[in-house]
Design a protein around this nucleic acid. Structure first.
Length: 569
DNA sequence: CAATTCGGGGGG
DNA sequence: CCCACCCCCCGAATTG
């Protein structure tokens, strides 16, 4: 039975719960229960729990071993609805939503605390505003209003689906945080030793870095600190080589004996400081790395992790991600996710046809659109999605425009809307913050603000969008909006993929342990691996139909069943 | 002294 | 010369 209940944690640690009718209004008396976990555990037929925040409730339920089928996260919904209404940046707490509803002073959102290294699940939190409890009656008032606001959305069905998907993402994130990514500290140390050599007592540079620094100094004929860009630029200058920076691409073009050890030093230095022994000490406990996933951490809907650099694990370090004995990692990577999503949202017939096959999309584009090879086709497609303005790829981009006019027009339209400060939305309705009048949130998100010299609103727009008529910042906003519709719609789809996969895994021992934009890792007993592989395939196709409606576009995955993450693909 | 910015490199 | 987009994280340098 599709029962829906609401739940509010009370100050004394008890909870108030109430059943809801089909209209979302209370359909029975409010009941006070002594404990959260037992209140939920004793109602296994509830199909969706409406609560204030999964970040608050999820970890406590997981600690007690209680799983919920679905949830509705009121604060996640508030964020999405505010964005959709063009009110990006207003406080999104349930208390703020209530204040807006009642006409009272709106409390600002609390600053989000950053993760502390090695912090265990946050039972102990600093005194914070967000721990203020909201009575169930107030939560239900906010919820009822949110339902009305979903009705007023541009596409109410999609907006409701978006909120459900984001709520599912919150649950998946909480469960991943609880499970952790299997991590072999001993293997990690072996990798570090192979790459960096012995550590010296006192925490100084490991042997290999010292040697490389000496090689660099020898090549210059004087002592040079390779980790100080200013020192390196000066040393090259004294050697008669002009360099503007010490970025790798620039160094690689130089003919100088210091280049090779310098590039090697920078690569290894990075591993040492960001994923070395102290990282291991800080972030790996009991055979698990817990990066604290935050669903909806970016404006496009992509996730971030809080602490530990969880979404930037270097390839060489993935050797340390190893399944438990008798278990496997199912590593699944969506094939060419973004162009497939572009095909689905633009409905460009040519691109839909190409994306309607499981075979390599970039190869197909290359075969059809121009004489160039796959690599050039990939660059042209990414150039279209990112708003490339210069470089060799522009020629191929022109060919792409001729062959897939609807697809390019779709992102061009988004770019123009972004330049003009209009709202731009993903397929399900997540909304890109407009620059004009945007609050701090937009700036934090890296959205370029308008400058006074902007010319964008005084120009008659040609039929086809062309670059070059708007201010630098307006064009930057255009590129932001152009990419937003594709990256964000891909995030919409990925959330529904995760939601579907989570439901399948619920009947198994398998656990979702990692998610990175278009890649997911499931940790499972060996005998479940084949089922998981099939579940990912099914969830991907189902997510495609749920998100975009009937579409010929396919969403294939490359999957690998491995014991070690580094052995995938 | 702490807070912010910069330069460079990691992920997609 | 490399690109465009979204992020995280570090140490050093700079600023308040």
């Amino acid at each position: 039975m599709a029962e829906r209940w609401a739940l509010a944690v009370a100050e004394d640690g008890g909870v108030d719960v109430a059943p809801l009718g089909p209209d979302g209004l209370p359909a029975g008396p409010v009941r006070r229960e002594p404990g959260l976990a037992e209140a939920v555990r004793s109602r296994p037929d509830v199909a969706r729990w409406v609560w204030r925040s999964t970040a608050e409730t999820g970890p406590r339920l997981l600690a007690a071993g209680v799983r919920v089928e679905r949830c509705y996260d009121v604060e996640a919904a508030e964020t999405l609805l505010l964005g959709h209404e063009g009110r990006y940046g207003e406080p999104h707490s349930a208390a703020a939503a209530l204040a807006r509803l009642r006409g009272g002073p709106v409390p600002p959102d609390p600053p989000q605390r950053s993760a502390e290294p090695g912090a265990q699940s946050s039972l102990f939190e600093p005194q914070a505003v967000h721990l203020v409890h909201l009575p169930l009656s107030d939560l239900l008032a906010v919820y009822a209003e949110q339902q009305r606001r979903h009705e007023r959305a541009a596409y109410p069905d999609r907006m409701r689906l978006l909120t459900a998907a984001e709520s599912a993402g919150m649950l998946v994130a909480a469960e991943m945080n609880h499970a952790g990514l299997p991590w072999r500290a001993d293997v990690h140390r072996e990798v570090l030793h192979d790459l960096l050599g012995e550590r010296y007592a006192g925490g100084g540079e490991p042997r290999r870095l010292t040697e490389l620094a000496e090689e660099v100094s020898a090549a210059f004929g004087r002592r040079v600190r390779p980790d100080l860009p200013a020192d390196v630029v000066k040393a090259f200058g004294q050697a008669g080589v002009k360099v503007g920076s010490t970025r790798r691409w620039e160094l690689e073009s130089l003919d100088h004996p210091a280049v090779k050890p310098l590039i090697e030093y920078k690569k290894l230095y990075r591993i040492w400081v960001a994923h070395g022994w102290s990282w291991l000490q800080d972030w790996v406990r009991d055979g698990r790395f817990r990066p604290e996933f935050l669903a909806g951490g970016t404006v496009t809907g992509r996730w971030v992790t809080n602490g530990g650099g969880g979404l930037q694990i270097p390839k060489v370090i993935r050797r340390a991600v190893v399944a438990d004995p008798g278990w496997r990692l199912v590593v699944a990577d969506a094939d060419q996710m973004e162009p497939r999503v572009l095909a689905a949202i633009s409905r460009d017939p040519g691109l839909m046809e190409v994306a309607g096959r499981e075979s390599d999309l970039y190869q197909s584009v290359s075969d059809r659109a121009f004489s160039g090879d796959r690599a050039q086709a990939k660059l042209a497609v990414l150039g279209a999605v990112y708003g490339q303005t210069s470089g060799d790829g522009l020629k191929n981009l022109a060919a792409l425009r001729r062959r897939f006019p609807g697809a390019v027009a779709y992102v061009d339209d988004a770019a123009r809307a972004g330049e003009e400060g209009r709202l731009v939305r993903t397929w399900l309705g997540r909304t890109c913050p407009p620059a004009a009048g945007a609050a701090d949130g937009a700036e934090e998100a890296g959205l370029p603000q308008d400058d006074p010299s902007g010319l964008s609103d005084s120009v008659d727009h040609p039929q086809e969008w062309v670059p070059g008529y708007a201010s630098t910042n307006a064009r930057a906003r255009g590129r932001f909006a152009r990419n937003f519709v594709v990256q964000g719609s891909a995030a919409d789809w990925a959330l529904l993929l995760l939601a579907g996969l989570r439901q399948t895994c619920a009947d198994m021992t398998a656990e979702l342990v990692f998610f990175q934009h278009d890649e997911v890792i499931v940790h499972c007993p060996e005998e479940e691996a084949a089922t998981v592989v099939a579940a990912i395939r099914d969830a991907a196709e189902l997510a495609g139909r749920l998100t975009f409606g009937p579409t010929p576009v396919r969403f294939p995955f490359t999957t690998a069943v491995v014991e070690c993450y580094a052995d995938a693909k």
